[in-house]
Design a binder for these strands. Structure first.
Length: 569
DNA sequence: GCCGTTTTCGGCCCGACTGTTTTCAGTCG
């Protein structure tokens, strides 16, 4: 049982309790616990197995610790099952309709016996909703709109999908009348691998004019709200954007607040309270006196901390590290000297080897590794021994032509079910960088999958593991692995784990990167480019690495050519 | 239901926006 499955049970319980009209603080307690479960890296199942007390976790007390154990033991929660007999589960779906919260859902259920979106639509079309006390024609209209916009639960955008839209919107808003500054906050600023919506923050001479201009952005499908300082719209691609206009004097406090994460902000506010201060989105206050708020730096200084980079603001130890002045010196894109994973027309890449070389040189890289697929991978035409030898020849020619730029002979070698590489040793031993990668048999048991990967790591020719967990965000779950054992093997063998920068892979995730780093694992950050343009995906890998607390020294492709060659040997 | 350097009770973030109502409740972030 995974943490997020337990979190889902708590969230469901919270929804139903809320509709029932339970104490809102109790409801929040369940939600807080769910958030804790989602954000801690370690499975609570392991903690229980180790005999650890779960109530050490923030937001989890005696009662919830017991409920978690019940879920782990029985796979379900009696309290939730009981509640479902009282309140139809389907009512939850109504909560995700814009403008409908627990109170209104309760009224709709108790008066009109509406328990699903279809019945709700019927009732709205027959103008039954507007007759209810507290409801009116506008609400009815809004509900119909909300049903049309009803998003499936948990639809999030890949960071790389949101990025161009945010850039376009910023360019547009920079032309708004009287605009002073404009910036994206929220999970986008924290460079999270997926974003649910985008929070934008600006300062302006006449806020209402900017709001008006914002709602006229060409991609806007629906204006949800538009006040004097704040507006929410949904774009044609269903991405929601919130814009807030704030006073210049409050900008730092607002930026901190809207950048989040929620748990980070709460933790910072708690420190402020302990110091006799109060932080809100407008500033830092001592009694009634505002003492800071202009910049984020001022906000952090008020609680005696250095500025914490947005990528780290997840309440995963960054505040403690900041207090001890031990924040990592995070890696940057400029630290990268080369790319160690890419494909060419020798396998499933779109561009020739030489084009990849030229593009890498234009990026001021010192080296690349060309890593086409081995032929065992049935879905793509890969390299057999003969084709590999032909590629070696071309690489040697290009090395001469483009010296001192260096091209490593590499290969993305399929790891077979038994953990052996899908390429003969005779070829493997001629490679500088063989990356092991799993492309099949994703469903092996945790034990078998771990054994398979460790065997590959121990293979003397394999230097690193590409996209280690095999996940595709929103599409394919990560492999079942004993990650601790994987890290141990990587470290013992002096190998590296790849952080794959493809936007829908971003594999490893931030939590695993941090965990591996703490165990002394080295990483590569590589694009797995299948076209020369994708070499610029490196920035997404950097985002992920920063969220995983990596410094330059943790990453092998920040090293000079000489040092990297030594490392590979 | 959680939590504690005002501790075992009594707090728990709170302001903006909207719609319905006429001073406020519900929702949202």
């Amino acid at each position: 049982m995974q943490n997020r499955e337990i979190a889902a049970i708590f969230n469901e319980l919270a929804d139903l309790l809320e509709i029932k009209g339970e104490n809102p603080f109790k409801v929040r307690a369940y939600r807080n616990a769910a958030r804790t479960l989602e954000s801690i890296g370690k499975p609570v199942e392991e903690m229980v197995a180790e005999g650890k007390d779960l109530s050490i976790l923030p937001g989890i007390g005696k009662d919830l610790a017991e409920k978690i154990k019940e879920i782990l033991r029985t796979g379900k929660l009696q309290k939730l099952d009981n509640l479902k007999k009282e309140i139809p589960e389907a009512l939850r779906a109504l909560l995700s309709i814009e403008g409908l919260g627990p109170k209104r859902v309760k009224v709709l259920y108790e008066t009109l016996h509406i328990s699903d979106p279809d019945a709700l639509k019927e009732a709205a079309l027959h103008h039954e909703i507007s007759k209810l006390p507290g409801f009116g024609p506008k609400t009815e209209e809004k509900i119909l709109k909300g049903i049309r916009l009803l998003k499936q639960e948990g639809v999030r955008f890949l960071f790389a999908e949101a990025e161009p839209i945010v850039e376009e919107l910023i360019a547009y808003l920079q032309k708004a009348p009287g605009i002073l500054t404009i910036e994206a906050a929220g999970s986008f600023r924290r460079k999270k691998e997926t974003v649910g919506d985008v929070d934008m923050l600006c300062t302006a001479k006449e806020p209402p004019k900017v709001i008006d201009y914002f709602t006229k952005f060409s991609q806007v499908l629906e204006v949800i709200s538009a006040g004097t300082t704040r507006s929410t719209v949904v774009l044609k691609n269903s991405l929601q954007i919130d814009l807030r206009v704030v006073e210049k004097e409050s900008y730092g406090a607002a930026l901190h607040y809207f950048t989040g994460s929620k748990t980070h902000v709460i933790a910072i506010r708690q420190i402020a309270i302990d110091l006799g201060l109060k932080i809100n989105e407008y500033g830092v206050y001592q009694k009634e006196q505002k003492v800071a708020g202009l910049t984020e730096k001022d906000v952090y200084e008020s609680v005696h901390l250095p500025v914490i980079p947005p990528e780290l603001r997840e309440n995963r130890g960054e505040i403690e590290a900041a207090a001890k002045n031990r924040l990592p010196n995070l890696i940057t894109l400029e630290d990268i000297r080369g790319d160690l994973h890419m494909h060419t027309t020798y396998s499933d890449g779109m561009d020739t080897l030489e084009t990849m070389v030229k593009t890498a040189i234009a990026k001021n890289y010192t080296y690349i590794a060309v890593t086409d697929h081995s032929a065992t991978l049935a879905v793509v035409k890969g390299l057999d021994a003969q084709k590999a030898l032909k590629q070696f020849e071309e690489i040697e020619k290009l090395r001469e032509r483009y010296a001192p730029f260096h091209i490593f002979k590499g290969m993305e070698v399929d790891i077979l079910e038994d953990g052996s590489p899908g390429m003969e040793d005779d070829i493997l031993k001629q490679l500088d960088i063989a990356l092991g990668a799993i492309h099949s048999k994703f469903k092996l048991t945790r034990k078998a999958q771990t054994k398979r990967l460790i065997k590959a790591i121990q293979n003397p020719y394999i230097k690193g593991i590409a996209h280690p967990t095999g996940r595709l965000i929103g599409k394919r779950a990560p492999l079942e692995l004993d990650f601790k054992e994987i890290c141990k093997a990587i470290k013992e063998e002096g190998k590296f784990l790849e952080i794959n920068a493809q936007p829908e892979r971003l594999d490893l995730n931030d939590v695993l990167i941090k965990e591996a780093r703490e165990k002394g694992v080295k990483f590569s950050i590589a694009t797995d480019a299948h076209a020369s343009g994708q070499l610029s995906y490196m920035r997404y890998g950097i985002n992920q690495a920063r969220r995983g607390w990596l410094e330059k020294e943790d990453v092998v492709n920040t090293k000079s050519l000489e040092t990297l060659v030594k490392f590979l040997k």
